[in-house]
Design a binder for these strands. Structure first.
Lengths: 241, 241
DNA sequence: TGACTCAAAATTGTTGACAATATGAGATGG
DNA sequence: CCATCTCATATTGTCAACAATTTTGAGTCA
């Protein structure tokens, strides 16, 4: 199934297709499709197909692709087209390093002070994760798993941080697809709710530490080694012995 | 000599104008102009004038403006044009909060491990700041003052963090222009070199703490209060007494 | 069967023209 | 003199058309 089919399907199924499809809407949809692993790394995103899928002209599609490219979600190749990004191992390491700076600090801040509305929102979210897990809705669970992180950043009330986290979490989704060493594409069952427990207790340091460990855990499931194989390994690989 | 030849010659006379002016180049130039306070908040950026200045078509200018808008440097107003951004006090607070998360962590990492090349680069930079300060080159000093922070992020070796910091530092430059309560538009004389000293000594915690204090100091020079004036104040302001 | 060549088709890059909207200048009336 | 209205000008939004480039498919040859 090609890119326009993924997007066209979501268009038909989505009754909230707005009257006015601007770049932001297109960007949002593509973010979601990436997050749900419906658009894998290296997937070609043809302008014409996107125009058809969204019912808009090339200008709007090109603007959306430009924004997505700047956000690291899409790679634009001159005269060849747009492709869902395939982050290198180096980029992946940088993304997780950046997340390790940002997300514990966010968890810390949120634990120190959270509105009852945001706490309820996060609790509801964890419930949705549990439901999706129990009812086998894989795509939903994948999306919800990443979204917990974005919602936590939303609860921080800092839109700058939220935006950065959202971009990094979405790119992490691509990284998991490329470098995952197991079938695990979602965060472990209990870790979000444990973290939410710390947040509810107002234990800033525990929340921050737990987030840090959580990210280490996610990263441990990925093969992000950038070390060159030693010469002996090369001989093995190329079967020159 | 025709008008187009005059324009072509004028372009060639620009020392740093590359053969190919793409969006990235336009974005860079506008970042620099904002950083140096040559482009103040609310300044109108007309497409036609940008086309003339850069010698490119509207498409390229519009793409650059779109990127700058997404990065918070420019505000696009439909049918009215592009303006250098005027961050609200709320945004300003968010930006500084985000910087307070990111930059101490960066300073910490850089102090823990810095290449001799990066250390030399930062030392050279502080020297340039000192020279600009002593020789009264205000625009250079403004730019260099902000750039220290960006170069520190560059020294972290993490391009994700560097990019975020650059955006936030540039937006901070606008904030200083809007909300500065003194004539100070640059970081205090010794603070960058003191921080660099901690970094050179490898004292991670001191470097992080110093960066944190440094940012608090910058912020103290700004009026970012979002508290509503009390009713008594309103009467004063409106001269209703 | 694989490699090469070439033409056709597909796709992206760009522009000029026109539509839509906002702004500014001048005229008019109170 | 000021407020309102009208109209011209300026500017941004959008598109179709064409240029430029890449990809694909067909044919030929060894």
């Amino acid at each position: 199934m090609g890119a326009s089919a993924e997007l066209a399907r979501s268009r038909r199924a989505d009754r909230s297709m707005p009257d006015r499809v601007d770049e932001a809407y297109i960007v949002e949809r593509i973010y979601s499709a990436v997050m749900e692993h419906r658009l894998p790394p290296a997937q070609k995103l043809s302008e014409l197909k996107l125009c058809e899928a969204f019912g808009v002209g090339r200008m709007r599609v090109r603007r959306a692709l430009l924004l997505l490219s700047d956000q690291g979600i899409v790679e634009l190749e001159s005269n060849r087209g747009a492709f869902v990004a395939s982050p290198s191992r180096t980029e992946a390491n940088e993304i997780f390093d950046a997340r390790s700076v940002l997300e514990p600090a966010i968890a810390k801040q949120v634990a120190a002070e959270i509105s009852s509305a945001n706490l309820a929102m996060l609790k509801q979210h964890v419930l949705l994760e549990d439901e999706a897990r129990e009812s086998g809705k894989g795509a939903d669970l994948i999306r919800l798993s990443g979204e917990f992180h974005v919602k936590l950043a939303l609860a921080s009330g800092n839109s700058v941080l939220r935006r950065v986290v959202r971009e990094l979490v979405t790119r992490s989704s691509l990284i998991v697809g490329l470098y995952g060493t197991s079938n695990r594409t979602v965060c472990p069952d209990h870790e979000h709710s444990d973290m939410l427990g710390e947040i509810e207790r107002g234990d800033s340091h525990a929340a921050a530490a737990q987030m840090f460990e959580h990210l280490i855990g996610i990263r441990a499931g990925l093969d992000l080694s950038t070390t060159r194989p030693e010469e002996g390994d090369l001989k093995d690989i190329l079967d020159l012995r």
